[in-house]
Structure formats: structure tokens, C-alpha cells
Measured scan of single mutants.
Amino acid sequence: YQDQEQRILKFLEELGEGKATTAHDLSGKLGTPKKEINRVLYSLAKKGKLQKEAGTPPLWKIAVS
């Protein structure tokens, strides 16, 4: 689980600052079920590491501290 968090954070960091992506996109790029990706995304957002942008589907990006 920790491993997934690292992979997602790394992927988003590599996208570049301010760039956002969807759970669907992450799921495809990382070869992980979207349900699992979503769980990790919401967990990271709760920890303040990610920012969720409203929309359908929601967009995710690295939180700027």
C-alpha cells in the first residue's frame, strides 16, 4: 500500500508542477485497478499530499505546501 502511494506520488511529480491527472489515467499507466488507485488517492489527499480538483472525473495533483 505504501508502495502504491510512492508510485502515484512519483508519477504525479514527474508530470510536473500544477499538472493534474485522473484515476483512470493513473490506473492505465501504473497497471493497477482504478478502485485501488482511488483508495490511495483519497488517502493521500487526507494526508495533505494531494489536491483533488472538483469535476467529473476529479483531477488529482500534488498539493503545494
Rank of each mutant, 00 (worst) to 15 (best):
L15A: 10
K47T: 10
P58M: 04
K52P: 03
T56P: 08
G31T: 06
A54R: 12
A63S: 12
E5M: 03
L9E: 03
R39K: 08
G48T: 02
I62D: 02
R7E: 09
K29A: 14
T22Q: 01
G48R: 04
E17Q: 11
S27H: 05
L41D: 01
I37A: 03
T32M: 15
K19E: 15
E36H: 12
G55P: 00
S27V: 08
W60K: 01
E36W: 08
F11T: 12
W60H: 01
K34A: 09
T22R: 02
L50M: 04
Q4I: 15
F11Y: 12
A45I: 05
A63D: 08
S27Y: 04
E53I: 12
I37T: 05
E14M: 13
A54Q: 13
T21L: 13
S27A: 14
I37N: 00
G31Y: 06
S65C: 15
T21M: 15
K47D: 11
E17F: 04
S43R: 14
Y42M: 12
T22E: 01
D3W: 15
I8L: 08
P57R: 04
F11V: 12
K49H: 12
K19G: 14
K52A: 06
Q4P: 10
A45N: 09
L44I: 00
I8R: 00
L41K: 00
A54Y: 14
K46Y: 04
P58W: 02
F11S: 11
L15G: 07
L50H: 00
G48K: 08
G28K: 15
G55H: 05
L9V: 05
E53L: 13
L30W: 04
E53D: 12
G16E: 11
A45S: 11
L59H: 14
T21G: 02
I62Y: 04
E13P: 01
Q6W: 07
R7L: 08
A45T: 05
L59M: 13
G16F: 01
K35M: 09
L41T: 01
G28S: 14
T32G: 05
K19F: 09
I62S: 06
E53W: 04
Q51M: 13
T32E: 13
E5L: 02
E5D: 04
N38H: 12
Q4M: 15
D3V: 11
G55F: 03
H24D: 04
G48E: 05
Y42I: 09
G55R: 04
I8K: 01
V40W: 11
L12C: 06
R7F: 07
K35F: 05
T32K: 14
I8Q: 01
E53N: 09
D25M: 13
L59F: 06
G18D: 13
S43F: 07
